[in-house]
Amino acid sequence: MGFKLLSKLLVYLTASIMAIASPLAFSVDSSGEYPTVSEIPVGEVRLYQIADGVWSHIATQSFDGAVYPSNGLIVRDGDELLLIDTAWGAKNTAALLAEIEKQIGLPVTRAVSTHFHDDRVGGVDVLRAAGVATYASPSTRRLAEVEGNEIPTHSLEGLSSSGDAVRFGPVELFYPGAAHSTDNLIVYVPSASVLYGGCAIYELSRTSAGNVADADLAEWPTSIERIQQHYPEAQFVIPGHGLPGGLDLLKHTTNVVKAHTNRSVVE
């Protein structure tokens, strides 16, 4: 069995187990497998329904001669939608809004960016022009300005110390501490036991640490421990890039980060 097929099978099995364990909360999309990078042309966006009122959005972007996937989250909030992270750029984010209108038909009224990198804030200006209120932590807003990236308009308070959590509509926002970046936030959907790890969490097929220019490698494993301790009931975990899975993604990420750190020390 090929690795790609095995990865998709694991996603399907995880979703099936969740649907059985929580039949009222989960209505997993039966329309197909989780979209992969090879299936999404740059400039297009796919939506994948995880649970009743919960979707991931998947886009792709060219970077350094390669094409990478990027995940975000959409959560229903009454007759409105909360968006977590842009679709990595203005063109993708405009396509995301169009796809949401086509498939869901509810307005996106608020959006949260989970850290300051372009795959999370690139497209904020498109959201703002569409009347979406954009939010991020003060740290993310400051770092985005320093980096020359787009800056969300509103500040999220109460997320300055490791372990801080605040309720934001249908989700809980959690600051686990520094990891992929010093400002990275985690998003949890309690009604569906869905954990969105953003770039602080890796997919299972990833074996290298990737972009760690703004990471705190020493603190990252401790931050992941905080996530595990705060959300032990999480059933569906979405990484910032690639295929979702279960809580095993947290341990896998820790292993990859520690291996990278150990290699760096040896070198």
Rank of each mutant, 00 (worst) to 15 (best):
G158S: 09
K102T: 12
A192L: 07
S208R: 09
I58T: 15
E172R: 03
G122T: 06
Y231N: 07
V237P: 02
Y231S: 01
T153M: 10
Q229T: 12
R46Y: 11
N255L: 11
Q235S: 10
Y135A: 02
K8G: 07
A136F: 04
G169W: 05
H230D: 07
Q235E: 13
P69E: 15
A111I: 05
L82T: 08
S137G: 06
H117E: 00
F116I: 03
L83R: 01
A90T: 11
F26Q: 15
D183G: 02
E203C: 04
A179Q: 02
V256C: 02
V28I: 14
A90P: 13
M1R: 03
T207D: 15
H57K: 00
H117L: 01
L83V: 09
L97F: 03
R110S: 13
P170C: 06
S181Y: 05
S113N: 06
G197F: 02
Q228C: 07
F26V: 14
P107E: 12
V212E: 07
V28Y: 15
D248K: 10
T261R: 12
V28S: 13
A51H: 08
S191G: 13
G2I: 05
S139C: 04
A178Q: 09
A59H: 06
D125N: 10
T254D: 15
G198E: 02
A192S: 11
N184G: 04
A98D: 10
I84P: 00
R141T: 06
E157T: 12
N262F: 08
P23F: 08
I40R: 14
V112G: 04
D29W: 11
H154M: 13
T153F: 14
V166W: 07
S30R: 11
A19R: 11
A129S: 11
F174S: 05
V67R: 15
S70L: 00
G197D: 05
G245M: 03
A133I: 11
G123R: 04
S208L: 12
G53A: 09
R167F: 11
A59W: 04
V187I: 11
F26K: 15
G72T: 01
A90I: 08
F3H: 06
V171S: 02
I151L: 08
F63V: 09
E145G: 13
G148C: 04
G122N: 11
L156K: 05
S137E: 03
A144Q: 04
G72R: 02
D183M: 01
G198C: 05
L73N: 00
G246L: 05
I238T: 03
L106E: 06
S160N: 13
S160I: 11
V265A: 12
A259H: 08
P138K: 07
I238H: 01
G240E: 05
I201D: 05
I201P: 02
P239M: 00
S30L: 12
P190M: 08
S191V: 09
E101V: 10
R120Y: 02
Q61W: 08
I201T: 07
L10T: 14
L83K: 01
V265S: 12
A218H: 13
E80T: 10
G89F: 03
M18S: 13
E147C: 06
Y175N: 08
I50N: 05
H117G: 00
G240P: 03
E44T: 11
K102N: 12
A218G: 13
A129K: 11
P107R: 15
A59M: 03
K8L: 05
S31C: 06
A218P: 10
Q228F: 08
L73E: 00
D183W: 00
E145Y: 12
Y202E: 05
V237N: 01
T36Y: 09
V112P: 05
V265M: 13
R263P: 13
G32E: 09
S38A: 11
R226D: 01
G148N: 11
Y68I: 15
Q229P: 05
V187E: 04
S31K: 09
D164M: 13
V171F: 02
F116G: 03
G198H: 04
A66G: 12
S38F: 09
R46I: 12
L82C: 03
V45K: 01
S181R: 02
R141K: 13
A130P: 06
K102L: 12
R167E: 12
I201V: 14
E145W: 12
D85G: 01
H57W: 00
E233I: 11
P35F: 08
V146H: 13
T60R: 07
E225W: 13
K258N: 13
W88R: 01
G246P: 08
S56C: 15
R167M: 11
L249F: 06
I84A: 03
V132A: 07
I238D: 00
P69R: 15
S22V: 13
R46G: 10
P69G: 15
I104E: 00
A66F: 15
D248R: 08
A192I: 07
G148W: 05
E99T: 12
S62H: 06
L159K: 02
H57I: 01
A136L: 03
D125M: 08
R120G: 02
L127D: 04
E150L: 02
V237S: 01
T182M: 13
Y188E: 01
N149M: 13
T153Y: 12
K102V: 14
R226W: 06
I100L: 08
V54Q: 03
A15T: 10
G2P: 10
L5M: 14
Y68A: 15
T134L: 01
S16C: 15
S38V: 07
G43N: 12
L249K: 01
T261H: 09
Y68M: 09
A200N: 02
L47K: 04
P244Q: 06
G240D: 05
I58K: 06
Y196N: 03
N71E: 00
A19T: 15
I50P: 03
N211S: 10
H117R: 02
S181G: 01
W88K: 00
E157F: 11
L243M: 14
L217R: 04
E267L: 09
I20R: 05
Q103Y: 14
H180A: 00
D214H: 09
D29L: 07
V121W: 01
H180E: 01
R120A: 04
Y48E: 15
R76D: 05
L185R: 03
T261G: 11
V189F: 04
V132E: 03
S181C: 02
V266A: 13
A25M: 12
A144Y: 05
D164N: 14
D85C: 00
A200V: 07
E39F: 07
D248I: 11
